[in-house]
């Protein structure tokens, strides 16, 4: 059990029909139990990056080690995909069965889990995402956020160590987005390693580590405070800072004595209250 659960070493990947690398000499590591965000605008290669992690695509050069296993190694394909579950963007296009329960069972059936063990694992997974009451429903009658939570349950039932989210909230309304993000944060608090691909700055601001991708390359990594400290640099990659960080920057420029590193509304209220106490 190494502490570094995902290791990418100088990885390149090019789509056949494309002229340049979708992922270009990327090296990164994710620690066990960490919640990592990968940010980048459309076409920056962030989706390609996660598909490399669970072996849906294989690197042209470089190596990807997921939980110590090389994704190039044919022997480990199903092992890797069981340990690194993936939730996709479109909630409709990843549910297979006509009943929620049966969809959660899909991964278990594929990995050959004995039928007698399934009900317990399904119930636990549905409970973890708070969808127990919907177990017998048809997926197409659920809301987007509920569908994504079913998809998460389908992965959870397989008892993975890592969960990869490929813009899992991009197609949801604000409420569904919050619902899903909170579920994932809870899973992370319980020890799940999470790689969270997004283009929402507020979500990235709540992760422990943020990686920024641009034109296939990993251009910046660090804590949210580090990454979001420089608005101009982010704008080079056509990204913006979270709204509260932008507001803090404006206020600082106007002479209000706010410290660096304000990212969320909570940070802002805390600092403003602290300031007010000094007055």
């Amino acid at each position: 059990m190494s502490d570094e659960i995902i290791v990418l070493k100088d990885v390149c990947y090019k789509y056949e029909e494309s002229s340049h690398n979708a992922v270009d000499h990327v090296s990164m590591t994710v620690r066990r139990g960490e919640m990592t965000a990968v940010l980048g605008r459309n076409g920056s290669g962030k989706s390609t990056l996660v598909k490399l992690i669970n072996g849906l695509i294989l690197p042209d050069s470089g190596t990807v080690l997921t939980d110590g296993m090389d994704t190039q190694d044919d022997e480990h394909v199903w092992d890797i995909r069981q340990r690194a579950g993936m939730v996709f963007q479109n909630p409709d296009n990843q549910l297979v069965a006509t009943v929620v329960r049966e969809d959660v069972a899909f991964g278990l059936e594929n990995t050959g889990v004995p039928s007698t063990d399934m009900p317990e694992r399904i119930d636990a997974a549905l409970k973890a995402v708070n969808m127990t009451d919907f177990a017998e429903r048809a997926p197409h009658l659920l809301s987007g956020g509920q569908k994504q939570r079913v998809a998460i349950a389908g992965i959870l039932a397989m008892r993975p160590d890592i969960m990869l989210f490929d813009e899992a909230t991009a197609m949801l309304d604000p409420r569904g987005r919050k619902e899903v993000f909170e579920t994932v944060r809870q899973l992370n608090r319980e020890g799940m390693t999470v790689v969270w691909i997004t283009h929402f700055m507020e979500e990235a601001a709540q992760c422990e580590t943020v990686h920024i991708m641009h034109d296939g390359g990993l251009v910046l990594s660090g804590t949210p405070q580090e990454v979001f400290s420089d608005r101009e640099r982010l704008q080079n990659w056509r990204l913006d800072v979270p709204p509260m960080a932008a507001l803090a920057q404006h206020l600082r420029a106007a002479g209000v004595g706010l410290p660096e590193g304000i990212l969320s509304i909570d940070d802002m209220t805390r600092e403003v209250e602290a300031l007010a106490a000094h007055l």
């Binding site: 849906l56 995909r81 039928s115």
Partner: peptide
Amino acid sequence: MAMEARCYHGGEGRTRLH
């Protein structure tokens, strides 16, 4: 793609819920 990510590899070695 989603089915592959969830370890689907045909009927071989598959167990069933029911």
